[in-house]
C-alpha cells in the first residue's frame, strides 16, 4: 500500500497523527490474531499494546523490505506467544527448533464433502458467521491452532513458524494440514450444501474391474449404507 509507506515515512519523521493512523488501521486485525493465540481478552490486549509500543520505539529500524503490515503482525504474534508461554510457566523463548516429537498418526480423511451453499463473502453476512469461525478455531488442539494462526493469519513462513514455536518444519506442515482440514470439515458441516454431498469412495482407473482399493471401499460403503448419497 503506497499510502501506507507514506504514513510510515511521516511517522518516522515525527508525525504522531500518521503513527496513530497506522495503529487504527491494524489494531483490530492484530487483536484478532493475538486473541486466537492466547484465547484470553486481557492477554490479547497486552500483546497488542506491547506490539505497538515496540513498533513505536523501533520504527527507525523498520527497513521496508517487508510491508509495515507484515512487520507489525509478526511483532504482535511474537508478543502473544511470549505471553502464552509465560502463562504456562514455560521459558519465554521458544525451545530450539526440532525439540518436539514428530506428529504421528494418519491424516484424517475429509468426511463431509460438499460445495458450500454460497460464496464466502455472502456467508459472511449472516449474524452467526463470526461465532461459527471462532467456535471452529477454539476447538482445534492448541498445537494445531497456533500453527494455523501463525501461518495463515499472521503470514509467517514455515521456517519462521518453526522458529517461533520451536518445532520442526515437518511438524509445522503436518499440523497446518490437520488444522486446515479440521476447520474445513467444521465449516463445511455448517456451510455445505447437504443435497450435493459427495462420498469419498469413488471410481478411478481400474475401478471398472472392481479390483482397486477404491472400488472395494466403494462396494463395502454401499453394502454398509446403501443410501442415496451422490457417488462420483
Amino acid at each position: 500500500m503506497d499510502d501506507e509507506k507514506a504514513l510510515v515515512a511521516r511517522a518516522r519523521g515525527g508525525d504522531y497523527a500518521a503513527f496513530e493512523e497506522l495503529v487504527s488501521r491494524h489494531e483490530g486485525r492484530l487483536y484478532g490474531i493475538a486473541y486466537n493465540i492466547v484465547r484470553r481478552r486481557e492477554d490479547a490486549e497486552d500483546a497488542v499494546q506491547t506490539a505497538f509500543l515496540n513498533a513505536l520505539e523501533h520504527l527507525g529500524e523498520f527497513r521496508e523490505e517487508a510491508s509495515f503490515a507484515t512487520w507489525i503482525t509478526h511483532i504482535a504474534a511474537n508478543a502473544a506467544l511470549k505471553i502464552l508461554r509465560k502463562r504456562r510457566g514455560l521459558p519465554v523463548a521458544a525451545p530450539p527448533t526440532g525439540a518436539d516429537e514428530d506428529e504421528e498418526g494418519d491424516i484424517p480423511h475429509p468426511d463431509f464433502i460438499a460445495d458450500w451453499r454460497d460464496e464466502p463473502a455472502r456467508l459472511a453476512e449472516s449474524r452467526e458467521f463470526q461465532e461459527i469461525l471462532d467456535g471452529a478455531i477454539e476447538d482445534l488442539p492448541e498445537k494445531h491452532r497456533l500453527v494455523f494462526v501463525l501461518r495463515d493469519l499472521a503470514d509467517k513462513s514455515v521456517e519462521e513458524t518453526a522458529g517461533a514455536l520451536g518445532i520442526s518444519r515437518a511438524n509445522v506442515k503436518v499440523r497446518l494440514l490437520r488444522a486446515r482440514l479440521a476447520l474445513r470439515e467444521r465449516l463445511t458441516r455448517v456451510f455445505g450444501d447437504e443435497s450435493r454431498r459427495l462420498v469419498r469412495a469413488h471410481r478411478h482407473e481400474g475401478d471398472e474391474r472392481g479390483t482397486t482399493p477404491a472400488a472395494q471401499i466403494l462396494r463395502s460403503y454401499r453394502d454398509d449404507e446403501g443410501q442415496a448419497r451422490h457417488e462420483m
Partner: peptide, 24 residues
Amino acid sequence: CNPCRVVVDTVRKTIAIYKGGKAC
C-alpha cells in the same frame, strides 16, 4: 475425482474466509 476437487476448493475457501475475516 470430484470429491477431491471439492475438498481442495473448500480448503481454499476456509483459508480465505479466515484470512479475509473482518477485523474485530
